[in-house]
Design a protein around this nucleic acid. Structure first.
Lengths: 191, 191
DNA sequence: TTCATTTCTTTACCTATGTAAAGAGTTTTA
DNA sequence: TAAAACTCTTTACATAGGTAAAGAAATGAA
């Protein structure tokens, strides 16, 4: 649980009394490669701290094609944030790409503490602001940069991931086909 | 100031004592068409409630090309959120596309109240969560839909805007050239 | 270890969209 | 109100990236 505490306090420091309340809410769980933390078409109820492993968040369009929205590499928080916030059915599945260890927690047990623990609500505010900043960065990258440049950013941001997961997941994350990623890689190597 | 109160309370209800504190922080100001609420390369300090008018948020790449990230149509909140949150120099300018009336407020005078007014910090949390949801929606649209479909969504979302602002701003919002928007419009009309 | 499955690359062909330039039509503004 | 500055559309051509299919290579399972 130390990694979780360090990660959380890095975002917004929580008081000892708040920690005493929330530590027991988190339970360790293992997720095997290819298993799901949260699926499509269900109500998300949990948030988790990803201690080790790699998770992808993706959505599937009507034709069944997948688009990888995000990769999570421990230590970080995972969970179907949009479904948790809106209470609507989830459209973005989160699947383990390697075996994972997480500390999972009912989201509602946390939000129930906001009234009595303003430091936890402050933490939630900072998390939301943080996610907003991440999204804005990605939005600008998608519109401003071509696939070759986004591939470079991906390699900087996730230096270990390229060896760990199939190319097709990386292509899907970059918003291009595996064919096109193959062309880009060929082009980069030839230089 | 009634529109502001109604809009804010719609997001998260604020107590009377909090309203007494924050109402005097907002000052009415007029922004002429083509003038800026916030520019690139400056530190953002203000947030505002857009009472009437249309504002665009855009960024400019190294070659000087502009991309319209967002349109704001009153009543709504404007401000260079990313610069306010990070304290870094702003990269996304906000410019009036029509004459506007805003109630402006120093962002810091609001955040200074978080410690003593948890209902205001709750409001800030909900705003951040709301912005996150908006971005996620747009991210999915950009990746999943082609320009013709995004144009339909734009027309639904901003039914009045098409007559009010130049096509080139709409094209830039859709992430395409004015040439391509012209082709799409021609195609839609021919059906 | 071998067979089946998955992954990666290549090829051929197609399409959406980009750029540049030019002309017609509209607004501004001096 | 005349000239200047925008705006919109069209054309011609270029290109990034899509799809489908097939073979090679790598990985996983029996």
């Amino acid at each position: 649980m130390e990694e979780l505490k360090a990660y959380f306090n890095g975002i917004s420091v929580l008081s000892d009394s708040t920690w005493d309340k929330i530590v027991p809410l988190f339970n360790e769980r293992r997720i095997k490669r290819k298993d799901y933390f949260v699926r499509e078409h269900e109500l998300a109820r949990e948030i988790a701290f990803l201690k080790t492993g790699v998770v992808r968040a993706y959505f599937t369009n009507e034709e069944g094609k997948e688009y990888n929205k995000q990769f999570f590499v421990g230590s970080t928080i995972i969970g179907a944030y949009t479904s948790l916030l809106t209470g609507k059915s989830n459209i973005i599945a989160q699947q383990a790409l390697t075996d994972c260890v997480v500390y999972a927690c009912k989201y509602k047990s946390l939000t129930d503490l906001y009234d009595t623990h303003p430091d936890l609500e402050r933490f939630a505010r900072k998390i939301a602001e943080h996610y907003f900043l991440e999204k804005e960065k990605k939005e600008i990258e998608i519109v401003l940069l071509d696939a070759t440049e986004r591939y470079s950013i991906f390699k900087n941001e996730f230096p270990t991931l390229e060896q760990l997961i199939p190319q097709l997941h990386i292509a899907s994350y970059l918003g291009i086909s595996a064919t096109q990623l193959s062309r880009i890689r060929k082009e980069l190597i030839s230089q």
